[in-house]
Design a protein around this nucleic acid. Structure first.
Lengths: 199, 199
DNA sequence: AACTGACCGAAATAAAAATTCAGTCATTTA
DNA sequence: TAAATGACTGAATTTTTATTTCGGTCAGTT
């Protein structure tokens, strides 16, 4: 019963945050959708922020599952990293909540939205960092600071997808993939199982 | 005399834009500093924007001179590119006008400030692009799209300097230099005159 | 004891009033 | 009489005031 109510509230909150964003979601709104008195919400969550973090945590787990599935695949390492980045950004641009938060940050600048997106980014960086460390332990990668490496990988991928489009026409996926490999992986990979096109 | 007045106006405007930014600089202010009637300004410049662009053009030229000086130096190519990026960002973080415009964009979001900074960035990208094209012609570089290359170089450098500092403690200059080389140049340089530290 | 929703006031938003400033143009100056 | 000026205008911004919204509480209900 208590658990049931908790779930009702979380589901209602998730729905509302995804639909209206952080700011435009009111506690009254959540209570109404959950068919629960507003006060009841405060039995389970200290405040709006805590409730939101519960939802966010679920999203982070969801993202990690996707990445885990990818890194379990039997593929060359650089291919895996590329695909994790690809799926992560894809995830963010498909998931309603992430979408809504980006829009909210852009349009209204809600600090909570910014923090949430930073958290998502930070989790991704930590994930990639661990992957790189593991690859280094397996000697698939040159030694180096995995934090710097993951950061650069993320920034490079982001540059080629999001940032590039602010100045020029979008690059097609093959070009991005090729460029990502050519200008980055080639420089740090110890073994190079990828075929260079020219010469 | 006419030329004298024009110069007076430009100098006054440059001073005021650098001191107060675009928005907070008034035409009355400029006229007062230039010791000229406000109407006189409109004899030389159609409007505030045109006057501002005149100043901006001077700044762009200034930046190009610095870059030209750098690329005239007798240094390995990757070293030159690194130093041009370094000086360009340094320039932007030292030049009063550029500084003020960044602040204005951050605090008030003046569209004109944004446009001006984009213009500065765009000019830098074009400059690097030309340098890369020239290096490719001299066979110092692998063939590739110089626009993508310049964009990535810029983004990589920016990531290591500006963006990194938003999440972590700043990297020291040697680390940045080494990383810039290790993770990027190594991947596209045909000849590698740089000594790798490890192994 | 678990739950509820009317209620509170801080904070956000909207409306109204006051001010600023780019650009014009009739007047002055040399 | 051409060049220079600065008082003037109204659109846009800023400041002030009025109104509404909403997170959180708690007295009352089930």
């Amino acid at each position: 019963m208590s658990l049931d109510r908790r779930k009702q509230i979380i589901d209602a909150a998730a729905k509302s945050f995804a639909l209206f964003g952080y700011k435009a979601t009111t506690m009254d709104q959540i209570a109404k959708i959950a068919q629960v008195g507003k006060g009841t919400i405060y039995t389970f969550f200290a405040n709006k922020e805590e409730l939101f973090n519960e939802i966010l945590q679920q999203v982070i787990l969801e993202m990690k599952h996707i990445a885990d599935r990818e890194s379990a695949e039997q593929r060359p390492f650089h291919e895996k990293v590329f695909r994790i980045l690809d799926q992560a950004l894809e995830f963010r641009s498909r998931h309603e909540l992430a979408m809504k938060l980006s829009q909210e940050l852009r349009d209204v600048g809600t600090p909570m939205a910014k923090e949430a997106l930073n958290r998502l980014e930070s989790e991704l960086l930590t994930y990639i960092e661990a992957q790189l460390q593991a690859a280094m332990d397996r000697s698939e990668l040159e030694q180096g600071d995995p934090r710097i490496m993951s950061f650069i990988m993320y920034q490079l991928y982001r540059s080629l997808t999001t940032e590039w489009n602010k100045l020029y026409e979008p690059l097609d996926k093959d070009t991005i993939k090729e460029t990502f490999y050519k200008y980055f992986m080639k420089g740090i990979l110890r073994v190079t199982p990828y075929e260079s096109k020219d010469e």
